[in-house]
Design a protein around this nucleic acid. Structure first.
Length: 816
RNA sequence: GCCCAGGUGGUGGAAUUGGCAGACACGCCAGCUUGAGGGGCUGGUGGGUAAAACCGUACAGGUUCGAGUCCUGUCCUGGGCACCA
């Protein structure tokens, strides 16, 4: 027994003990309900950073708490080991990623263990392991069969620095999400997942999830469903041709005074007068160049356009209106053309003013009582579009209808006349997954000129999976330049066609690493399975994830992709559910001592190793859980770390100082004069339990501090003190597991706290039999009275009125 | 511009359903402990006053016996999306 709290001497001992006795093994409680607690898969850099330490502290508290509540808990771990950082390091230092990665994994794993995280290491997986990525290939082929993967030639976001394609989700304000370089637009062939086929399901599924509103809103926004009408504007002079436009504001169609098309709209070159064609293609080229220069998603350029000379008929006013091409109309969205309503769309307004195009007011504010001319006059004076809903006017039979009603009526009329139909558009794009890099999952496709002259790609048969990454000479192949590295490995690329046996080439692209993380969480439940990604029986037992914890930066990346993948897995019959994670917690970042985000360049990084060495894992965990609510960003504070260390020291001394006077087993004994302490003990049990259920770790720890302070002040009966101290140690154990185990033994127990049942609050002891009641007069605190819990209202009123302080404020007044 | 989240002491943050604002901690102040190095203990700590009164949860209104909490408007901060028709 020691009189000083010395974390270093106790923590490794308990970590060994837990590992030797395999105490965190999932599935060791048959018949108990399950809980699946998961932190997002880390990339195995050589050292765990503080952000990781925070996430694992959160999942670990939950995992340990749930185990003590009797659940069969799955708390697994693995490595997102494919990807660019390893490949870039290889280019720089000439070390093969397959050599470096295991070293990094080993070192990172030791950090996780020394933080006391209760992982079932039998689940451990690594995404660069062929036994894992073969199933990426298997999924790819299943999706190919279902038309959910396809080859397309398209404009892609290309990062010149990473030398690879990026998905839409991986471009942030025109910059590469990883390296920050300006993204270029290039047109090359690529493989894409048809995530857009699930746009509506992805949207609907959000309603059932217990996820932060922030993330749900972001996904909703990203999917971007927009309901409207597609309608034809027939070309004057060639009635069989028409510009089809998409609009969400069919109620404004009588105000459509021109059509704006994307510069490379196919009908423009076809129908424009010969004299205009050169000008139009020059304009299209100019817009393309601007897009490439500025990068996808960059700030809006000045609105520009060119009159095509084409004229079309507004299908409702029957007037002829011009077709313009404009740089703000996107070829890839809707029909690539819009009906322009300058009176009721700000963008169309600005364009019309610039080029002197007509404007017609057709919607008026609903509350306006002016006549039509006066309304038009007033709207015109504001020198901007009126974009709100209102009442339609100057619109034939539809005049007088509210906008919403007119929208539907006009759409119905268009449909009746067979010139249009309701349509839905989504902002969501298909997910391009081809990457021109080495360190990733090879795409299981072969090209054979004989069997597949169009180059669509021939799937590698299942029995030839996995398509293994070839070993390479790093210096020769990983140059970071030119064609995909795998294309240079001729012994690997050139193979016999699986169909005809003739000469064929393998697909040299690899999959986006985000594919690796779409389903890893389901592999944990059956990590050694070599017949299937995982078995249905294991899926039925463990899925979905009950609590998923990770950073909010993945809101429209991983967190969208893995939902899509789950829907596909469901359709393949692999699992019953369609959503992967019922509850999501997005934890805030840990900032440095200067309040800035920790980064090497700023030199403000605090390493978990340093803190564990100086104060111990328990202190590190307590600090991160106490300093801020889980979802909020937090600043590193050395003083607060020391504060937590002091608290654990106080608990340590409290237990040791109390040992000589602790009587009996303590539990449930009524002792004279001990009610106050016993009430506090049982209330604390109840509160900490509720706080854990609500993931309020910071307030849970403050409840523990209050109980600790009460124990330290206690002078009375000893059996109740034992009860209080034992409860304290028990409740502390999910947060600071090492010191709690140590103290538990010193209190005379010989079982493991890991599996010892969570304490129960005695319902009789969590209600008070007397209360302090605050008395307010006219909303101001004027006194305090003590009343019995059994007292009725009139009794309380009388007591209050008798109180001298209160009485003073009541003189001369009537109580209502 | 649009969509989220949030503005509470010197600091991090508490406050089921509207009911004692500031729990718990950090920091600071005073004292004690003749053991030094991030040591322990006791007391104090929103403003204001001799003590009260009184004032205090971004700002301005409102509802209520009573508002940090509900309603209306405004400002600010953080995050996301941005020519999406």
């Amino acid at each position: 027994m020691q009189d000083r709290y010395d974390a270093k001497s106790i923590e490794p001992r308990w970590q060994d003990h837990w590992a030797k006795n395999d105490l965190f093994r999932a599935g060791n409680r048959p018949g108990s309900p399950k809980k699946y607690v998961l932190a997002m898969l880390p990339y195995p850099s050589g050292e765990m950073h503080m952000g990781h330490a925070r996430v694992y502290s959160i999942t670990d508290v939950l995992a340990r708490y749930m185990r003590k509540r009797g659940f069969d808990v799955l708390h697994p771990f693995g490595w997102d080991s494919f990807g660019l950082p390893a490949e870039n390091a290889a280019i720089k230092e000439g070390v093969h990623p397959a050599v470096r990665t295991p070293k990094n994994v080993k070192s990172f794993k030791q950090d996780v263990v020394s933080l006391g995280i209760s992982i079932d290491w039998s689940t451990e997986i690594s995404t660069s392991d062929p036994s894992y990525y073969r199933w990426n290939q298997w999924f790819f082929l299943r999706m190919l069969e279902r038309g959910l993967v396809y080859r397309r030639r398209s404009k892609v976001n290309f990062c010149p620095s990473c030398n690879t394609v990026l998905a839409n989700e991986q471009v942030e304000e025109g910059k590469c999400w990883r390296c920050g370089s300006t993204v270029e637009e290039r047109e090359i062939p690529e493989w894409a997942f048809r995530i857009t086929a699930y746009a509506d399901k992805l949207l609907e599924g959000l309603n059932k999830l217990d996820w932060p509103e922030r993330v749900v809103a972001m996904q909703r926004n990203w999917i971007g469903r927009s309901d409207g009408l597609e309608i034809d504007f027939a070309v004057a002079g060639s009635p069989s041709k028409a510009f089809r436009v998409f609009t969400t504001r069919a109620d404004t169609i009588f105000g459509a005074t021109y059509v704006a098309a994307a510069p490379d709209h196919p009908l423009v070159q076809e129908l424009a007068p010969a004299s205009k064609r050169a000008e139009l293609s020059a304009f299209a080229e100019k817009v393309r160049r601007a897009a490439k220069e500025v990068g996808a998603g960059a700030a809006a350029a000045e609105k520009e356009g060119v009159d095509t000379g084409i004229r079309v008929k507004n299908p409702f006013t029957h007037r002829e209106v011009p077709v313009w091409v404009a740089n703000f109309v996107l070829a890839g969205y809707g029909t690539g053309a819009v009906m322009a309503v300058p009176a009721h769309d700000q963008r169309d307004y600005e364009f019309a003013v610039k080029y002197g195009l007509d404007l017609r007011w057709v919607v008026r504010p609903a509350d306006s009582t002016d006549d039509d001319a006066a309304v038009a006059q007033k709207l015109a004076e504001k020198k901007q579009a009126f974009t709100e809903y209102g009442t339609v006017f100057d619109s034939g039979d539809f005049s007088g209808m509210p906008s919403q009603q007119a929208r539907l009526a006009i759409a119905a009329e268009a449909q009746r006349r067979k010139i249009g139909q309701p349509a839905v558009n989504f902002h969501l794009r298909d997910w391009g997954v081809s990457r021109q890099r080495y360190w990733g999952t090879p795409i299981p496709i072969v090209y054979c000129e004989h069997c597949d002259p169009e180059g669509k790609g021939i799937p590698v048969p299942d029995n030839q999976l996995p398509v293994l990454l070839p070993d390479i000479d790093v210096k020769e192949v990983l140059t970071g330049k030119g064609e995909p590295p795998l294309a240079k490995v001729s012994s690997w690329v050139n193979i016999a066609c699986p169909k005809c046996g003739g000469p064929a080439r393998r697909e040299a692209e690899t999959m986006d690493t985000f594919v690796d993380s779409t389903w890893y969480w389901a592999r944990y439940i059956d990590p050694k399975n070599d017949k299937a990604p995982f078995s249905r029986a294991q899926a039925d037992k463990w899925l979905p994830i009950d609590v998923y914890v990770g950073g909010p930066e993945h809101a429209v990346l991983h967190l969208l992709y893995f939902r899509f993948w789950t829907m596909v897995m469901h359709e393949l019959g692999l699992c019953a559910m369609t959503e992967p994670a019922q509850k999501l917690v997005t934890q805030g970042i840990v900032k440095g001592r200067d309040g800035e985000k920790m980064s090497k360049s700023k030199g403000n990084v605090v390493s978990p190793r340093e803190i564990i060495r100086d104060f111990g894992a328990d202190t590190a965990r307590m600090f991160m859980l106490f300093a801020a609510p889980a979802e909020k960003d937090m600043d590193w504070s050395d003083e607060q770390v020391q504060g937590q260390h002091r608290f654990l020291g106080r608990v340590w001394r409290l237990v040791h100082a109390s040992l000589p006077k602790l009587a009996g087993d303590g539990a449930g004994k009524a002792e004279a004069g001990a009610d106050d302490l016993r009430r506090r003990t049982h209330k604390t049990i109840l509160r900490v339990t509720q706080q854990l259920e609500r993931l309020q770790f910071n307030t849970a720890i403050s409840s523990l501090m209050e109980l600790s302070n009460a124990c330290a002040d206690w002078q009375g009966a000893s059996a109740s003190l034992r009860e209080a101290i034992e409860a304290l140690v028990q409740l502390l154990s999910p947060f600071a597991p090492h010191v709690a185990e140590e103290l538990w033994r010193e209190l005379g127990h010989d079982d493991d706290l890991v599996t010892h049942a969570w304490p129960q609050a005695d319902p009789q002891l969590v209600v008070d039999d007397a209360y302090q009641i605050a008395v307010q007069v006219n909303g101001k605190l004027r006194g305090e009275v003590q009343v019995l819990a059994s007292a009725g209202e009139s009794e309380i009123r009388e007591t209050a009125a008798r109180d001298p302080k209160v009485a003073g404020w009541l003189t001369g007044k009537t109580v209502k």
